[in-house]
């Protein structure tokens, strides 16, 4: 073999390896989906959604976990959306270029890299103990809000950045104030990008387990929470609880609950992708 042939051979060998590497991830994903489908699909029934947890796997359901997840999501959104968008606007439109704005920026990048369990420790000390909110939905949601805040802030900023500065100038030239310009022009024009960021952030929050365990979400909640001050559990914690048990019946329950959780996450991510594409195609300046 001459040099040229070796070169070509190596090139082709890499190509085959690269295709395999690309496939490994996707194959794993496929195996994972098939496996949970095979394990859990037959367990999904109306009763599974409406039953309370139980010591007997065939009678246990995800009602309390599902309701808990909904409660936590809604309250997390209530805190994280306005604060995140507000902070994004502040950084993009108000903060003067200088040490303060670069400090804020580095700070937010750092927060985005803090392991989620650390937020759990923060929530445990501040919300549960210092503010005496207890091991409640409120403590859990506040913790998750802080966790997803960097995602909302960053996507708000990115979305505002895509609005051309000529919009801002046109609005100012008509005598609009700074806030009128932001509220009536910049935010509507950036809304698609901001919405996408919010959905992605919430879908991240839905899958979070560790920080909520630390804040004190319970493994076993035999009642449906009625207010934000009630104790709670969420789907991922219910799954963790079932996976940790030795009986095969609970593993099946876990698989079924995973199907529900995955469906929610996939739907949210899908919605985000569709929204992003529509937003990018709609406005072309």
């Amino acid at each position: 073999m001459n040099n040229e042939q070796v070169k070509t051979l190596k090139n082709n060998a890499f190509k085959i390896w690269a295709i395999i590497a690309t496939s490994i991830g996707l194959i794993m994903l496929a195996v994972l989906l098939i496996k949970i489908g095979m394990d859990g699909l037959h367990r999904l029934s109306f009763d599974f959604f409406t039953a309370l947890p139980s010591r007997r796997p065939e009678q246990a359901g995800i009602l309390t976990a599902l309701v808990g997840t909904l409660w936590v999501m809604v309250t997390t959104a209530v805190f994280a959306i306005p604060i995140g968008i507000g902070a994004g606007i502040y950084l993009e439109e108000y903060a003067r270029k200088g040490w303060w704005s670069s400090f804020l920026e580095i700070n937010i990048s750092n927060l985005a890299g803090v392991p989620s369990i650390i937020y759990g420790l923060l929530g445990l000390e501040i919300f549960v103990r210092t503010l005496h909110l207890g091991q409640s939905i409120l403590s859990g949601s506040l913790t998750l809000s802080l966790l997803i805040l960097p995602i909302v802030i960053v996507s708000t900023r990115e979305a505002i950045k895509t609005v051309p500065s000529t919009m801002r100038e046109a609005s100012y030239a008509l005598g609009a104030s700074k806030w009128q310009t932001i509220w009536m022009q910049m935010l509507p024009a950036a809304s698609g990008g901001i919405m996408t960021g919010i959905i992605l952030a919430l879908s991240r929050a839905i899958g979070e387990t560790a920080p909520l365990i630390v804040v004190g979400a319970l493994m076993y909640v035999p009642f449906v929470p009625k207010s934000v001050f009630d104790s709670f559990t969420v789907l991922p914690i219910q799954i963790y609880n079932w996976v940790s048990r030795p009986q095969a019946g609970f593993i099946i329950n876990a698989a079924a609950a995973i199907i529900v959780l995955m469906l929610i996450t996939i739907l949210m991510n899908g919605a985000a992708v569709i929204l992003r594409n529509r937003w990018q195609n709609r406005v072309k300046w």
């Binding site: 994903l29 994972l32 949970i36 879908s203 991240r204 839905i206 959780l261 995955m262």
Partner: peptide, 18 residues
């Protein structure tokens, strides 16, 4: 591939174990 990063980690735990 980015779906891999959005799968909740408890699901991966289940996958590793089972």
């Amino acid at each position: 591939l980015e779906i891999l990063a959005t799968v909740p980690t408890v699901v991966y735990g289940y996958f590793a174990l089972t």
